[in-house]
Design a protein around this nucleic acid. Sequence first.
DNA 1: AGCACAAATGAAAATGATTTTCATTTTCGT
DNA 2: ACGAAAATGAAAATCATTTTCATTTGTGCT
Lengths: 121, 121
Amino acid sequence: MNKSEIKVISVLERVGGFASAQQLHQLLLRSGESIGLTSVYRALQSLVDDKIVDQLRKEDGEAIYRLCGEAHHHHLVCKSCGSTVEIEGSALEKWAKAMAEEHGYREVGHLAEVFGICPSC
Amino acid sequence: MNKSEIKVISVLERVGGFASAQQLHQLLLRSGESIGLTSVYRALQSLVDDKIVDQLRKEDGEAIYRLCGEAHHHHLVCKSCGSTVEIEGSALEKWAKAMAEEHGYREVGHLAEVFGICPSC
DNA sequence: AGCACAAATGAAAATGATTTTCATTTTCGT
DNA sequence: ACGAAAATGAAAATCATTTTCATTTGTGCT
């Protein structure tokens, strides 16, 4: 965990939700931190790899990031405003496991995302 | 509905699932069609606006497209050799729908991928 | 057919997020 | 303090996508 990662985590804590790399960089600069955009991207990438940060995509393809508290969960993402809700995934876990077993796959993992338009949009 | 849109729809039919703009363009060229990448993007955009085509984003941010109403399916992908099996997804569909309804989301879609290591690896 | 005007087309340039390169600086172990 | 390794960031590169703009094609009208 290097300095950039600590700065990025602290700004993510302050934000308390999703933000893009560029937004986070701006926020850091405005709050007096000295950090390059490159380092923000690098820190985010490494935090995502370490599963400390969740990465999603807005409809326009821009990546947005947020601290992820829990171990494994799924999101319901609004296509229009990007707001997200964490959803319960035990049915999905079971399904993924069943499908994998049926075909003899080992070391199973999965990716799933549900999207739609939220009530307020 | 112009020529480009017709070409794009026909190649999407042939593909029968998701594909990126660049992939679709390559496929069209290989099958002897003459069409520019620009026109593929324009046709896709207009088909998405008309709700004839669904647009999603892969994790890397690239857009992928598929005909709306195309019976979509999911894959079980081998992490080691990359081979894929189509899997049955009705349990997943139900789950996605239930989760979305529970939170009042409309126009619901989802993405799911299961990965593991296949028997022969 | 011939003409005018709108729509379509695509090559090339522009855009914008993200990644890579690379030279410099900082950190750390000895 | 010294040298190796890691971190940093500015600038360049990348890559999907969009925009521009000049040219071609299609359409309606006479």
